[in-house]
Amino acid sequence: MTVLTDETRRAAGPRSAARRRSVFLTGILIAIAIAVALSLALGSRSVSIEEVAEGLSAWLQGQTAQDIGAIAVQQRIPRTVLAIVAGAALGLSGALMQAVTRNPIADPGILGVNTGAALFVVCGIAFLGITSTIEYLVLALAGGTIVAVFVYVIGSLGPGGSTPIKLALAGAATTAALSSLVSAVLLPRIAAMDVFRFWQVGGVAGADWSTLAIVAPLLAVAALVSLLCAPVLNALALGEEVAAGLGVNVNAARIVASAAGVVLCAAVTAVAGPIAFVGLMVPHVMRMLFGPDQRWLLPASALGGAVLLTLSDTIGRLLGYPGEVEAGIVTAFVGAPVLIVIARRTRLKAL
């Protein structure tokens, strides 16, 4: 019989965790491939695997497909790409928000970032007549940033500083107030309401390459900054005093990570509308699979968000046939019960 020494057990622990993470990572990558295939194949007109291959081949060669099914595939490619990019950004943003605030129910929606971006976009539509993606993007970034700072300041007032419950309450109150302002701006302006109501639901149906070209560089920079923050966020999880003892500038780390999270969320909100619950659900699932190490959790949350939003968009097309249900409605339908489960399990404890 083999006797395991303490040193052997300690060495086996990290190897076992690494193998488990590798298996989960492989599973997520396979899930992304499946989600992409389903997104390209399913919709108002379902296509065969051969038509998917033909459409992709023609697109890669810069040609227009001849078969109707292959043409449908080509038309779905930018939508699928936006779903992957937007889902990844929202999942990564949610993981950052939860790490920075040490709040298990933090996400861009609960902390008011989505609503702040929406309010500024509404005001731009109603009072400035904005129509371009760049204008949407600038206003969404401004609104998301201002509201995120406001919620953090309000949640930090009083004894104890920025506790999870205070931040959640400040975000909920701010979201309710800003939602009322959005309604107040829109109700007397029917034309603005018509423009806004489709955007407000949240979805990727209006994807095109020009929109992706505008937001992709911004999202890429924010994502890179987020991933570089992983070691610092691991230190913050040990507590502010321990992190400071390890040489971490706590305030600077929080500002940089929070800014990256706000940019990720606001940029997606500008082009796809305020899609809720992705940033809340995905990091929790990934934390159960990969553990709390941010070096694994952040990229896993991005991949998980891409899977969730791409599948939600595909499901919405099937549920609303011959029309479609926007992806934001599907994620909200799934996310509401998940939020209840999370609240019951975590009991609002800090991470």
Results as ranks from 00 to 15, higher is better:
Ser183Trp: 02
Ala17Asp: 12
Ala235Leu: 01
Tyr152Ala: 15
Gln61Asn: 05
Ser179Gly: 15
Ile110Phe: 02
Ser132Gln: 11
Val282Glu: 08
Arg287Asp: 06
Tyr321Glu: 09
Pro299Lys: 08
Val204His: 11
Val307Arg: 05
Pro159Thr: 15
Ala253Lys: 01
Gly206Trp: 00
Glu326Gln: 11
Leu40Val: 05
Arg102Gly: 09
Thr80Cys: 10
Ala223Ser: 08
Pro217Tyr: 06
Ile340Thr: 10
Ala343Trp: 07
Val81Glu: 10
Ala267His: 04
Tyr321Val: 03
Trp199Asn: 12
Gly62Glu: 04
Val52Leu: 07
Leu280Phe: 00
Gly305Met: 04
Pro299Tyr: 07
Leu303Asp: 07
Arg254Val: 03
Ala237His: 00
Pro299Ala: 13
Ala244Arg: 15
Val250Glu: 07
Gln61Ala: 06
Ser312Trp: 00
Arg189Ser: 12
Val122Gly: 11
Glu7Ile: 04
Val195Trp: 14
Thr2Asn: 14
Gly143Glu: 09
Leu60Trp: 14
Ser210Asp: 11
Ile130Gln: 13
Ile134Asn: 11
Val81Ile: 10
Gly158Glu: 13
Ala300Lys: 01
Ala35Arg: 03
Val113Met: 10
Val85Asp: 08
Ala33Trp: 00
Gly320Asp: 11
Val278Gln: 08
Leu82Glu: 09
Pro78Lys: 12
Thr310Asn: 05
Gly247Trp: 03
Asn114Lys: 05
Gly245Asn: 09
Phe198Lys: 13
Ile130Pro: 03
Ile340Lys: 12
Trp209Arg: 02
Leu308Trp: 03
Ile255Gly: 07
Arg197Ala: 12
Leu319Ala: 13
Ile255Ala: 11
Leu187Glu: 14
Glu7Thr: 06
Asp194Glu: 13
Pro104Asn: 15
Val153Thr: 14
Trp199Pro: 04
Ala12Asn: 14
Val338Leu: 15
Val325Tyr: 05
